[in-house]
Design a protein around this nucleic acid. Structure first.
Length: 852
RNA sequence: GCGGGCGUGAUGGAAUGGUAGACAUACCAGACUUAAAAUCUGUUGGGCCUUGUGCCCGUGUGGGUUCGAGUCCCACCGCCCGCACCA
């Protein structure tokens, strides 16, 4: 009997799979196709357990589908543009391109030992000119179809470094490098017209039955369809009226003031006229651009002195305030405030001593208003200052009545609005896909000619390396790249130096995988065959942006002829896996800042973490999200070299339900290894066993139950449940005294059931047990229904909902007989004490409850 | 602030509204061994006594619906994710 040598087994079978080329996907109309895709990684250069978990889940599905007769596409690539490469170049020199490609090599090297059933021949990185050139071609197609346009948008501006900052580069309202207070500044930028699809993207969510309900709900809220009233407040000074949009027109009689955004045209005008207002507005523009920053900032207001007339009472004048929490991007950039029924307005009115006028109250009467009264819209309330509909009605009815009345009287209009904004794709950065347009003094903005694509990023500055140590975009100051000839008139012109948001790169890679070397963005025939992605797997952090952008792109690509109509919703099923967490090892650096240590730099002894180099003890922060910046990223290579890939795969699947977070622990990995070694031993025992035994029938029954339960687990993404069942079945097999033939059969089935999770071990077992060919190609075992039927069943007996006894009865015994037997039970008799039960509930096959 | 989610033994977790704690980790005890490792077997939510197929309590907290609630509803507490230039 040989020992379980993971490294030997894994190298052997990886080579066998490669030689047989069984994971290379070719179009085959004889079989049903199955496209399984994990969200592709950013090439950080370090594979971590989160990746292993993600890809292992996809691999289980891919291998399972392969053995159920599907033609499987399971590709891998790299989301390779983005800021970390530029940051690395700034921090330690070098070039983003070199850094990225070297990381990709490293990561491929780290992924291959996992034994994933990937079609490596389709691999690409989004920073390959062959890929982003096709992306530029897509951009030009979108531009031609009116799906791209330019407008102004606000960015984070660092006034010291004179550069645009990403949100993550703004820390507590200050630039991460300069420490200067960030300002919001407007820039002309490129936008995708995703808002054209708001309604469609919302409606189509209903059809995504195999997406998690929470993701659909998040997208629904993000798109944020609302119906409200749009109307104008006339100004007492005769100036341009203030147009507002409100979702609660029923509270109009509670209006206290009119609020406008600091970026509202009226505010802009006043800013130019009054230094005091200019300084207030400048104050409002400090801080980052995130919605979070704006909404949590202290509420600031400034009374402009302008007055407007209430639309329902010309004698009622309301003040116009500039308020920092009103977004210019949403609605009209102006609102009327009803402090009695909006918490934010309430706080603002309290702070600036503005009136708070209740409009509605609960049906059972109102208490004193210490905060805004905001009942659910479906709740019936009493209107004490209503102006439309009944006195007692729901908020919804009130809104509808108010809109109807305003429309009938001609002073307002019912309007549907969406929260979803157009997608700004311009980035003032080097390491991204260049936007293929040219700015010409004579012709304006001119699209590049397709034959000039790809517009490739320059590697150096006429022979010398590009300098990344200066803030800002190197393309912007590049001596020669920027200058070009106008594609329209041929005169000297300048390239657009903005590059694309990296979300663009990831919004169509799934389509490119169907024909990764095509000379057009997609090959329609290949796309029609392979699309849609049957199962997409990734982190829930992508629930909104990436998935919504991809849904938009699929629609836009369809319009431009790059995807079939049927691929408008590109992901048939989505699974959002939980994160992998791990302790953070933290010490303090000389400057008082925290220093984070990699797990492999640390020895764990008696619950303490000791630095291997210095012997210094460091602080342990448990169960933190794995993050590059915190260095709490476990290196799977260490586990693979110690225990093998199968152990790593088994562990990441076993301990937590896939949708939840999992904490990586060293002891868990060791236990997984021990179990696999035990399975290997059992298989080799079974392979060499001889003779007859007892309990063959029972072992076979358990085998069929295992087939049923493991299969169900895989199909329902309950991999941890499948693994629990496999533990149980392994124990059964270990204890069984069955004859050699049955044991061998059971061990073979065990190998098959384990093959999606631990494919190398399964191949080794399959070979020992004389299975035919590769287990990866063997047809999935079928559970025999006849073997699953139980003759008798044990039912718990509850008395008043508490379990008191149990009876074992024939499985098909009818309800009346079960009730009779239950009532005759000694424990029931004791409690009833001769009295008749009030009620007896018999749930066949499950439980009996006697109500005494 | 807004949107979404999660909360069960020492630990990870299981449980179509139907026996709470499957399966595993850890710990403890035993077998094997000169010994250790490996392996195998067994115990383990808390409490009570009358030690029984016993009783009481127990799934973040407080209410509610139900014959029956970890599961459904309401409120609260805590943690996590997203918030449009991180990927």
């Amino acid at each position: 009997m040989s020992r379980y040598e993971a490294s030997e087994i894994e190298a052997k079978w990886q080579k066998a799979w490669e030689d047989a080329a069984i994971f290379q996907a070719e179009t085959d109309h004889q079989k049903p196709k199955y496209y399984v895709l994990e969200m592709f990684p950013y090439p950080s250069g370090k594979l971590h357990m989160g990746h292993v978990r993600n890809y292992t889940m996809g691999d289980v599905i891919a291998r399972y589908k392969l053995s159920t007769g599907h033609n499987v596409l399971h590709p891998m690539g790299f989301d390779a543009f983005g800021m970390p490469a530029e940051n690395a170049a700034m921090a330690s020199g070098g070039h983003p391109k070199d850094w990225t490609y070297s990381n990709i090599d490293t990561m491929v090297e780290q992924m291959k030992p996992l034994g994933l059933s990937l079609d490596w021949s389709r691999m690409f990185a989004t920073c390959d000119p062959e890929y982003y050139g096709q992306q530029q071609s897509l951009f030009l197609d979108f531009l031609a179809k009116g799906l791209v346009y330019r407008k102004n948008a606000v960015v984070n501006w660092d006034p010291v470094d004179m550069t645009v900052l990403a949100n993550e580069q703004v820390e507590n309202g200050r630039g991460w490098r300069s420490g200067a207070v960030v300002e919001r500044r407007e820039l002309t930028q490129w936008f995708f017209k995703i808002s054209d699809y708001s309604e469609d993207l919302l409606d189509a969510l209903d059809g995504l039955e195999n997406w998690p309900a929470k993701v659909r709900l998040m997208q629904e809220n993000w798109i944020g369809k609302s119906r409200g009233l749009q109307f104008k407040f006339e100004r007492t000074d005769g100036g341009a009226p203030v147009e507002v949009y409100t979702t609660r027109p029923d509270t109009l009689m509670g209006a206290s003031f009119v609020g406008i955004s600091p970026d509202h045209p009226i505010a802009r005008q006043l800013e130019a006229e009054s230094p005091e207002i200019a300084s207030f507005v400048a104050e409002c523009r400090k801080g980052g651009t995130t919605e979070e920053a704006i909404e949590t900032a202290e509420k600031l207001g400034y009374d402009t002195g302008l007055r407007v007339k209430h639309p329902l009472d010309p004698n009622w004048e309301l003040p116009v305030w500039i308020a920092n929490f009103i977004l210019m991007d949403y609605g009209t950039g102006a609102v009327f405030a009803c402090p009695a029924h909006d918490q934010r307005d309430f706080e603002f009115a309290s702070k600036y001593d503005l009136p708070i006028i209740p409009v509605l109250e609960p049906l059972d009467g109102a208490g004193e208003l210490t905060e805004a009264y905001v009942p659910a819209k479906a709740e019936k309330v009493r209107y004490i200052k209503g102006f439309a509909g009944s006195e007692e009605q729901t908020g919804e009815e009130g809104v509808d009545a108010a809109v109807d009345k305003a429309e009938a009287e001609g002073w307002g209009e019912g309007v549907t609005k969406f929260r979803l904004r157009d997608w700004g794709l311009s980035r003032q950065r080097y390491w991204g896909c260049p936007i293929p347009v040219v700015h010409c003094d004579a012709c304006g903005v001119v699209p590049e000619k397709k034959e000039n694509l790809p517009i490739a990023l320059p590697y150096d500055e006429d022979g010398t390396a590009i300098d990344f140590s200066v803030p800002g975009n190197p393309l912007d100051r590049h001596p020669s790249w920027r200058d070009c000839a106008c594609p329209a008139c041929g005169k000297p012109a300048q390239r657009e130096t903005d590059t694309m948001d990296t979300f663009v790169d990831s919004s169509w890679y799934f389509a490119r995988f169907t024909a990764p070397r095509a000379e057009t963005p997609t090959d329609l025939e290949a796309a029609s065959y392979w699309m849609n992605v049957d199962q997409y797997i990734g982190g829930v952090e992508h629930a909104i942006l990436h998935l919504l952008y991809s849904r938009f792109f699929a629609r836009a690509m369809h319009i431009c002829g790059h995807l079939p109509e049927s691929a408008k919703e590109p992901f048939d099923a989505l699974f959002t896996q939980g994160m992998v967490t791990h302790a953070i090892y933290q010490s303090e650096g000389g400057n008082g800042r925290p220093v984070y240590h990699y797990p492999e730099e640390v020895d764990l002894r008696d619950g303490k973490a000791i630095l291997k180099d210095t012997g210094q003890e460091v602080k342990i922060i448990p169960s933190a999200k794995m993050s590059k910046s915190k260095n709490n990223v476990v290196d799977p290579l260490h586990i693979i070299s110690a225990f093998g890939a199968d152990t790593a795969r088994w562990f990441v699947l076993s301990d937590s339900p896939p949708e939840r977070d999992v904490e990586w622990t060293a002891s868990g990995a060791e236990a997984a290894f021990k179990h696999l070694a035990r399975v290997y031993r059992l298989a080799s025992e079974a392979a060499t066993a001889t003779g007859e035994g007892t309990g063959d029938e029972e072992l076979r029954r358990e085998m069929h139950k295992a087939i049923r339960d493991v299969t169900l687990g895989i199909e329902s993404f309950g991999f941890n449940a499948s693994i629990a069942k496999l533990y149980g079945f392994t124990n059964t097999l270990a204890k069984s005294k069955a004859g050699a033939a049955t044991k061998k059969e059971a061990a073979r089935v065990l190998a098959q059931l384990m093959s999606p999770m631990t494919p190398h071990l399964a191949e080794a077992m399959w070979e020992m047990l004389e299975g035919e060919g590769l287990v990866a190609n063997a047809p999935w075992p079928q559970a025999d229904e006849a073997m699953l039927v139980e003759a008798s069943v044990t039912l718990p007996i509850q008395i008043n909902g508490k379990r008191r006894a149990e009876i074992t009865v024939a499985a098909d015994l009818d309800k009346a007989e079960v009730e009779k037997l239950a009532l005759a039970h000694e424990a029931v008799q004791r409690v009833l004490d001769g009295a008749a039960p009030k009620k007896v509930i018999v749930v066949p096959g499950r439980i009996v409850n006697v109500v005494a």
